[in-house]
Amino acid sequence: MTSVSTEAADGSGSSSSGDAVVRPLIDLTSRPTARTYLREAWRRREFAIVVPAQDLRAQNMDTTLGQLWHLVNPALLVGVYFLMFGVIIDTRRGVDNFLGFLIVGVVLFHLTQRVTLEASTSITQNMGLIRSIQFPRILLPAASVNGQTAAFVPALALAILAVLATGELPTLRWLVLPAVLVAQFAFNFGTALLVARIGTTMPDLRQILPHLFRLLFYGSGVIFSVDAFVQSAAWRRAFALNPLYDVITCARWCLLGEPVDLWVVAGLVMWCIVMPAIGFWVFHRSEQRLGA
């Protein structure tokens, strides 16, 4: 053990010489400021990239299709919904390209759902790590978000190919799609922090979340056009408060040219700012108690 690095690199080597600067003591019982905390987390950002990459590789290792499941799963979902709602119960009313409509809705909804479910157990599943090593705990939900988002990229590529196959042609509006996805990422990140925090004191959350998402699913117009089915303008405005409806509707505007209300755009902008702020505030506030 010849070369050891020390956290107190500055000045610690000369402290035996007598004239060393005595470093001031800091309060250990108060939490670090948001700025210091984020800087520490950023310094260790590699954790939130390498760890989920490894988890993903390990996830479907014992299945025949392996990593292909990240593609097959959303494709099967689209198939089931198309059969149920497109063919058997006809909800195609008011939509020109129902398959494309369904693909965009299902894939984007699925992403937020996966991120949220994964993040809700990100703290409780890593108690061993938390109790052994001091590090900014925000890295754990961040790893969930990154992992699920990375797994979603091939599904998104497939969805875009499928939309092209249904007869859509790329327009200038497609260039707006990255902005919509970035907004969704920000929303997902905030939600992940919030559920990670709640999940530590209330493990029941894991049971509640699927039902919450079922409810959100019907309120997000994944399988039907809200504009065609909901007549009242006031009710349509209420839909704009649903962040997932905002994401999906804006993405459909980009890819399919479906109409979008200004309220929906405003809703998306609001959510992608407010949710990360709420999530970070709640998470950072009780960071120190997460390991106890």
């Binding site: 309060d27 250990l28 090593i133 390991g291």
Partner: peptide, 18 residues
Amino acid sequence: TGLLPLRSGSIRGRSRPS
């Protein structure tokens, strides 16, 4: 290490302990 809050008193140190 800051894992449990103090009811009163203080704990100060050069850096956060592991």
